[in-house]
């Protein structure tokens, strides 16, 4: 091949003006070690030819994600997006709501004096622990007796159920005995 033509083609190739046919012509010249082709072009075409058959293996994805995750922790400016802002705003609103609710529960719009007064009026009825103990005992006994009163019908049902089960058991036994005697 004419070395001058090859030089012209190479010039067009580097300038990005060559056509596919012209590139093909250049590749043929490189393959045949033709004169007039520069060393750079030969190296480039050889490298392209070598890498042409390369494919991504199965580990590529896992390697990539491993590298990407390692990069993540290295810091860098965090982009303050709208969704992030909305998330912070939502948390802020909820915390404000909780604070407001707690404030209302604890203080209930009452001034400090009123709270102190309530504390006094809802104080103990008895000053003597012995008397309070006796009164508590009587009150709890009252509740205990009512609880047991409520439990009575349940006990009756349980007793009835147990009796029913034992009668059914006796009937089965007698039927088995009759069968054996026959």
């Amino acid at each position: 091949m004419d070395s001058n033509r090859l030089k012209l083609l190479e010039k067009r190739y580097w300038a990005g003006e060559s056509s596919l046919d012209e590139e093909h012509e250049l590749k043929e010249a490189v393959r045949n070690d033709a004169d007039g082709v520069s060393f750079e072009l030969v190296s480039l075409f050889q490298e392209i030819a070598q890498n042409k058959d390369q494919i991504l293996d199965a580990d590529f994805d896992s390697d990539f994600w491993q590298k990407a995750n390692n990069e993540k922790g290295k810091g860098g400016a965090r982009i303050f997006t709208l969704s992030l802002f909305m998330r912070y705003a939502a948390v802020g609103i909820i915390l404000f709501g909780i604070t407001f609710a707690l404030w209302n529960i604890v203080l209930k719009d009452e001034p400090v004096e009123a709270i102190a007064q309530t504390e006094m009026t809802t104080g103990d009825t008895y000053n003597d622990p012995q008397v309070a103990f006796e009164e508590t005992k009587r009150a709890l006994l009252f509740a205990s007796e009512k609880l047991n009163k409520g439990k009575e019908p349940i006990k009756e049902i349980k007793r009835f159920y147990n009796a029913k089960v034992s009668i059914a058991g006796m009937q089965t036994d007698s039927m088995n005995t009759k069968k054996k005697t026959k």
């Binding site: 009587r138 006994l141 009252f142 205990s144 007796e145 047991n148």
Partner: peptide, 22 residues
């Protein structure tokens, strides 16, 4: 503890039923 509560009146002989009267 409801069990303890209900066992109170069984263990103790002091009547609680007249509580409201007193």
């Amino acid at each position: 503890d409801l069990e303890k509560m209900s066992s109170l009146s069984k263990k103790m002989n002091i009547g609680g039923m007249n509580y409201l009267e007193n």
